[in-house]
Amino acid sequence: MTLNVRERADTIGTLRHISVFAMETLARWVPTTPELEAKIVLGRHIWEFAQHADGLGRRTHELRAAMHYSPAPTDPYVAILEEWRALTATADRIGTLYDAIIPDLDARYAAYLAATDVFLDEPSVRIVERNRADLPRMIEESRALRKERPELAASPAAAAMARRLAACTEYVSFRAPVGSTAERLA
């Protein structure tokens, strides 16, 4: 069974929340990351996440939710995001972003495409496809950075975070169905 319109809005909105969170995290890190080359790559990728969030946020309005509707993910997923943002070592920031967060986001985009009706939900599909197309380039740019600054290549935190993200399969806090008791009480 595919996602209904309400569930699509919740999922697209949650993906927007994650993109905004990533944009803000990189913005927070830029002044506090000492290595100039890392600062440059993070600074460029702020704009990538902003564009992803913008496209997703415009789509939520077309799915009968508010413009830029951005519900928070489930608590376990939020906890991982908060821990990610708190990292201070540049190698961990770079490693977790490009080896854990972005590949995981790509997997969640892929899961959305598998779960929706690609014909009835074509506008969402196009937005998600465009966002996904940026991700390999961002990872490739991080590889060039780590080639130039090899000391940034080893991140003890990255593999552990990738595992935790993979285990966190439920990340959307779906609203109760329309007309349900839960919705009437909300």
Partner: peptide, 10 residues
Amino acid sequence: LARQCADEAR
């Protein structure tokens, strides 16, 4: 502001 970040990084 996000766009400016990317431009200034470039």
